[in-house]
Nucleic acid binder design. Structure first.
Length: 471
RNA sequence: GCCCCGUUCGUCUAGCGGCCCAGGACGCCAGGUUCUCAUCCUGGUAACACGGGUUCAAAUCCCGUACGGGGUGCCA
């Protein structure tokens, strides 16, 4: 059994799209599942569009997610020599040739062909230039690109693990550029050379790259390698309505989900299920369980629509499954930015436990317990809740009775003021929202009895009295 | 235009010829538990794109059509 080697090879041209994250995840899962090697390779051959910021960000995000790599990151921009050497070898062997057509000329001809109803594609006019022809073009000031000579007939085919045989007529694929006229290599070339040099055994990537596979395979053959890595083209992730997933559908970058209070485990769990499922139908899976269960052969063929609602539900499930100490430490940063200096760790932990059961994001947890750390005189009662409060019959009497109760009762972990309300001949259930509003600032939230206890007597009384005075 | 890939409830999916008048999950709706909200529990809603084959038997195999997506770049 040869070692399994996979790579995640993003282009550093912006933030890491959620679809790319799933590609990274599947590669990582398969590497871990097979005890193989996971390599990070940055495909920055397009120097103009690549940024160092993006290179850093990719690594940062992968680390946050827990998708660690065994090798790399390799930057293709540092390996141009290898790609160029391969290209020149192909020129010598007449598998590629120098093309003196400019980018504009080629585009213009393509547009013409389209208008005339003919298929676009390079017409091969530089295929058979003589040394004299080339000299003449150089004299015109033209710089050559290098084009790969694609076969003129026959078919190209490869076996895709999740789709089976994929093949295409070579006649529909025209000669393509592998080295730009500015001397830099193009994706196809760098990709083929690197996969060979890094001895990549499995290539998992998006379905959008399925057609490019034939070209990369042709380059490999031209480089003397008839063997093929295992290919698996995974379905694309779509936005609501089946359109391309983009910003207008909400968050598409990992950072946005992180800042909205999503756990890496939940995000990865959800992404794993977009295009793949376990045999037994289990859906809530830890990263370790995903590694154990993941099978390439079970990946789906059809595109999946991203559903933020299900992600949120799943995040809630993961929040509930997180051990309290761990949850406390991940909620902490959110709490710090909201009510930083006022934090009181023991109460904070107690409150996280209460909120753990009822939140779907870490932000919600922090928000729900914020009232505990707000100074009494800064607590604002939300207008709708206040209005609801004022409409309650006997609200003044209720508050008076509860104030007296809280003042005199024996203190414990749960202060249940219902007896005070019942003593007035009222049903507590109907008017409890009054107390929620006075204590927590809105008519619903963390359980009241625990909250009063956590707040402590003085603070609870301050708030109840403030509400009473405001009536 | 041409080429490639795809099509099961609103959404994610199970299903790889009989176990399926299609199962699970999210969502939604209705009940129940509860100090509010939420969690949780119970029940309900809802799908094999269409048309031809093949077969004793098709969601599953084959061929068309429709629809969707991708490619057709000196982007990746």
């Amino acid at each position: 059994m040869s070692q399994v080697r996979l790579r995640f090879s993003p282009a550093p041209t912006g933030f890491l799209h959620i679809g790319s994250v799933r590609t990274a995840l599947y590669n990582w899962l398969h590497a871990r599942h097979t005890a193989g090697t996971f390599i990070l390779r940055i495909e920055d051959t397009d120097i103009a569009r690549s940024t160092q910021e993006s290179v850093d960000q990719i690594q940062h995000v992968l680390r946050w997610l827990g998708l660690d790599w065994d090798d790399g990151p390799y930057l293709q921009s540092t390996r141009f020599d290898a790609y160029l050497a391969a290209a020149h070898r192909m020129v010598e062997e007449q598998r590629a040739y120098e093309c003196y057509c400019t980018e504009d000329e080629v585009r213009e001809r393509n547009e013409q062909a389209m208008r005339a109803g003919r298929p676009p594609g390079y017409d091969g006019r530089c295929r058979h230039l003589t040394p004299a022809d080339r000299g003449a073009r150089v004299d015109e000031g033209r710089m050559p690109s290098i084009r790969f000579r694609t076969p003129d007939d026959g078919r190209s085919s490869f076996t895709d693990v999740i789709r089976g045989e994929v093949s295409v007529e070579w006649s529909t694929i025209s000669d393509f550029v592998i080295v730009r006229s500015n001397g830099t290599p193009v994706f196809f070339l760098a990709n083929a050379v690197d996969d060979l040099d890094m001895e990549i055994t499995h290539v998992l990537r998006g379905e959008d790259l399925i057609d490019s596979t034939h070209r990369v395979l042709a380059l490999r053959r031209a480089l003397g390698h008839d063997d093929q890595p295992v290919y698996a083209h995974m379905p694309l992730i779509l936005g609501p309505g089946g359109a391309k997933l983009s910003k207008r559908h909400g968050a598409v970058s990992v950072e946005e989900y992180r800042d909205a209070g999503f756990l890496p485990a939940a995000l990865l769990n959800y992404l794993a299920l977009l295009g793949w499922g376990t045999e037994d139908g289990r859906e809530i899976l830890s990263l370790e369980e995903l590694v154990a269960e993941f099978e390439l052969e079970r990946v789906n063929t059809s595109a999946a629509t991203f559903d933020p609602k299900k992600l949120e539900w799943m995040n809630g499930e993961h929040i509930r499954a997180t051990p309290l100490p761990d949850l406390v430490s991940v909620v902490l940063p959110f709490a710090r930015t909201r009510y930083g200096a006022r934090l009181d760790i023991p109460r904070f932990e107690a409150a996280v436990r209460l909120a753990q059961l009822r939140a779907t994001t870490l932000v919600q947890i922090a928000d729900q317990m914020a009232f505990l750390f707000t100074p009494d005189d800064e607590l604002e009662i939300d207008p709708a809740s206040w209005e609801k409060l004022t409409k309650v019959e006997n609200v003044a009497a209720i508050l008076d009775a509860v104030i007296e109760f809280v003042r005199d009762c024996e203190w414990s972990d749960e202060i249940d003021p219902r007896p005070a309300i019942e003593a007035l001949g009222l049903k507590p259930g109907k008017v409890m929202h009054v107390l929620y509003s006075a204590i927590e600032g809105r008519s619903q939230g963390l359980p009241l009895f625990d909250s009063i206890s956590l707040l402590r007597r003085d603070s609870a009384l301050n708030r109840l009295r403030a509400a009473r005075a405001r009536l």
